[in-house]
Design a protein around this nucleic acid. Structure first.
Length: 278
DNA sequence: ATGGTGGAGGGTCCA
């Protein structure tokens, strides 16, 4: 049957629709919070995230920039460690801290922070990098991902509340998440065993916010190595992720990678990723 | 070309 094609009807133009401020949750591996305090400050002032998960603080709690959160009107929940790792959550109002260690983890590193904020469960992770693969670092990465998967399977699936697991996963899920699979052939971030843990999480019902909100996006990298002009050549990888459960997926409005902090002076090698939800 | 860069901390380790 040849039916006349219907003209698409444009949505009604509202010149004065009320601007609803939807909550924003963001994740940013800062590679030293003290080196990046100004960039974090600028990011909070321009994007106004309700929640900002930070990774790789590279300092103990006492060294976390004292005035940063207060000046911005944020609360800081900090789980620091000397020189390496370290995670924190900046929040516009206080959060309930549920755990600061991944159940089952015996490595004793500061890579995990679980809080509840306005009925949303938020887990901020800094997964081990895993390089070089023949060293003890790779099994450490596998243990971390195994413990995280077990936590989802045994506890988080039964929360009955919105859930966000965000941070530096140090896993590029798909070949199109890296600029060159050959150059990274031996890298733990594209190792199939590591990827299987990402897929395990998605098979358990978690949704990759960036992937679902930006199908076929070409601009998808969240990290560019400092070396060899990787950023200028846009030779990056997507290893920072925001995974959400179904209750949160229903509320997603956008997921964006914010590139500006990577362009500023003395940047981190990562840049933030953020979700907006209703 | 096993380099290149950047942070912590004051050796090298880590990414």
């Amino acid at each position: 049957m040849n039916l006349p094609r219907q003209q698409p009807v444009p949505p009604p133009k509202s010149t004065h629709s009320p601007k609803i401020n939807m909550p924003i949750i963001a994740s940013f591996n800062v590679n030293s919070i003290n080196a990046r305090a100004n960039i974090v400050k600028e990011y909070c002032q321009s994007q106004k995230p309700n929640i900002l998960g930070l990774q790789e603080l590279k300092c103990v709690n006492e060294q976390f920039p004292a005035d940063l959160a207060g000046d911005l009107g944020y609360h800081a929940t900090i789980h620091g460690q000397k020189s390496y790792n370290g995670v924190a959550i900046l929040s516009q109002s206080p959060v309930n801290v549920i755990a600061n260690q991944l159940p089952g983890d015996s490595d004793g590193e500061a890579r995990f922070l679980w809080v509840e904020y306005n009925g949303v469960h938020i887990i901020n992770i800094y997964a081990p990098n895993g390089n070089p693969k023949e060293s003890e670092k790779f099994p450490k990465k596998m243990r971390f991902m195994e413990n995280l998967t077990q936590l989802v399977r045994q506890k988080l699936l039964y929360l009955g509340q919105p859930l966000v697991i965000m941070g530096d996963y140090n896993i590029a899920p798909f070949d199109h998440d890296v600029y060159d699979t050959k150059a990274l052939a031996d890298d733990a971030i594209i190792d199939e065993r590591a990827r299987q843990y990402y897929f395990a999480l998605t098979h358990l019902g978690l949704v990759d916010a960036f992937d679902i909100m930006n199908p076929n996006a070409t601009d998808r990298y969240s990290y560019w190595d400092y070396m060899a002009g990787r950023f200028q050549k846009n030779q990056g990888v997507r290893i920072d992720h925001i995974l959400v459960n179904g209750l949160m997926a229903d509320r997603l409005v956008s997921c964006q990678i914010h590139k500006k902090p990577r362009i500023m002076e003395r940047p981190s090698d990562h840049t933030p990723i953020a979700i907006e939800y209703k």
